[in-house]
C-alpha cells in the first residue's frame, strides 16, 4: 500500500520530459499510473524518480491525419472510448477498451502507458497488433515510427529505449470502417486477460493476435496463414482455429493452466472471427 520514496518531476512539454529523462535515467514515466502505481504499492517497482507526463500537451488528443488515426500516448481509455472520431472510424476499438479494468481505471489509464508497460496480460497490445498500428517514439535525437510487430519484445519490454518516450499511436484507417473484434477471457479477480484474442480483416487478409497467455502479446501467425486465401465462413473458421498455440509456450497458474489457456486461444479466436463473418 505504501510505495518507496521517490522524487517527483512534472513535465510541461515533451522536450522538458525528454530532458528530465536525460537527467534521471532511472526515472519512470508516469501518465495514468494505473500499471505503475499498483506495482509500486506492492514494492515490485521502486523507481527513485517519477516524471509526470500526463499534462504534456503533445501527448494528448485524438486526430485524423489522412488515412491515419493518431492517438496521443497520454490519452486516457475513456477519452478514446467516448471519442466520436474513434467510434466512427474503428467502432470495435471502444468495444475492446470497455473490457479493460473498470470505469475508474479507464478514466485514468492511458493507451501509451499500457503499451509501453507491456504487461503480458494487458488487452491493448493484442488490439494494436491486429490494427497494424505504428508507434511513434521520441528520443533525444528525434522521433522514429516503429512497426507494431517489432514493438513488443518481451515481458514488460518494448522497443522504447532508455531516454525515449512513446508519444503517439498511429492506426491506419482502411476504406470505410475497420473490422476488428476482441474476445477476452478475464481473470475473475484482477480482470486482466487470462487470454485475449484480437482479430481484424485488413487489406492483406486476417490479422490475429494473442495476449494474456504468453510473456508478451504476439501475432497468431498460424491462424493468419490458415485463413490466408480462404473465404471467411463458419467452416473455414472452425477448421483454422485448432491448436493455434502450443501450451508449452504459454504461462499457467493454479487457476488457469497453460493447457487450458491454449484451448481458450482456439475458442476465443473462433468466437472473435465469427463476429466478423
Amino acid at each position: 500500500m505504501y510505495t518507496a520514496p521517490f522524487t517527483y518531476h512534472r513535465a510541461q512539454s515533451l522536450s522538458e520530459a525528454l530532458q528530465m529523462l536525460q537527467q534521471n535515467p532511472e526515472a519512470k514515466l508516469l501518465a495514468g499510473g494505473h500499471s505503475l502505481i499498483p506495482a509500486m504499492k506492492l514494492r515490485l517497482a521502486t523507481p527513485p524518480a517519477l516524471i509526470d507526463i500526463s499534462r504534456v500537451p503533445e501527448l494528448r488528443g485524438i486526430r485524423r491525419e489522412g488515412n491515419t488515426l493518431v492517438i496521443g500516448a497520454a490519452t486516457t481509455y475513456y477519452e478514446i472510448e467516448s471519442s466520436e472520431l474513434v467510434r466512427q472510424s474503428i467502432p470495435a476499438l471502444p468495444e475492446a477498451i470497455e473490457q479493460i479494468g473498470d470505469p475508474m481505471v479507464r478514466n485514468k489509464g492511458t493507451i501509451g502507458g499500457s503499451l509501453a508497460h507491456a504487461d503480458p496480460a494487458a488487452d491493448l497490445p493484442a488490439v494494436v497488433l491486429v490494427l497494424d498500428a505504428k508507434l511513434k517514439i521520441q528520443g533525444p535525437g528525434g522521433a522514429r515510427l516503429v512497426d507494431v510487430d517489432s514493438f513488443f519484445q518481451g515481458m514488460f519490454t518494448t522497443a522504447v529505449g532508455p531516454g525515449e518516450i512513446l508519444t503517439e499511436v498511429h492506426v491506419p484507417l482502411p476504406q470505410g470502417v475497420a473490422r476488428m473484434a476482441y474476445e477476452k477471457f478475464p481473470h475473475p479477480a484482477s480482470r486482466y486477460a487470462v487470454v485475449g484474442v484480437a482479430v481484424a480483416i485488413g487489406p492483406n487478409g486476417v490479422r490475429a493476435a494473442l495476449t494474456g497467455a504468453g510473456d508478451h502479446a504476439v501475432r497468431l501467425s498460424k491462424l493468419e496463414q490458415a485463413l490466408s486465401g480462404q473465404p471467411l465462413n463458419a467452416q473455414s473458421i472452425e477448421a483454422a482455429c485448432q491448436n493455434l498455440v502450443d501450451a508449452g509456450e504459454l504461462m499457467g497458474d493454479h487457476n488457469f493452466s497453460a493447457e487450458y489457456r491454449a484451448h481458450l486461444v482456439d475458442v476465443l479466436a473462433k468466437r472473435a472471427l465469427l463476429r466478423l463473418v
Binding site: 500500500m1 512534472r10 499510473g33 504499492k41 481505471v105 485514468k108
Partner: peptide, 15 residues
Amino acid sequence: GQAVKSCTVFAVQVD
C-alpha cells in the same frame, strides 16, 4: 469530474 481510485493516484498528481 471523473471518478478515480484515490489509492492509485499520488496527491501531487492532482495539483
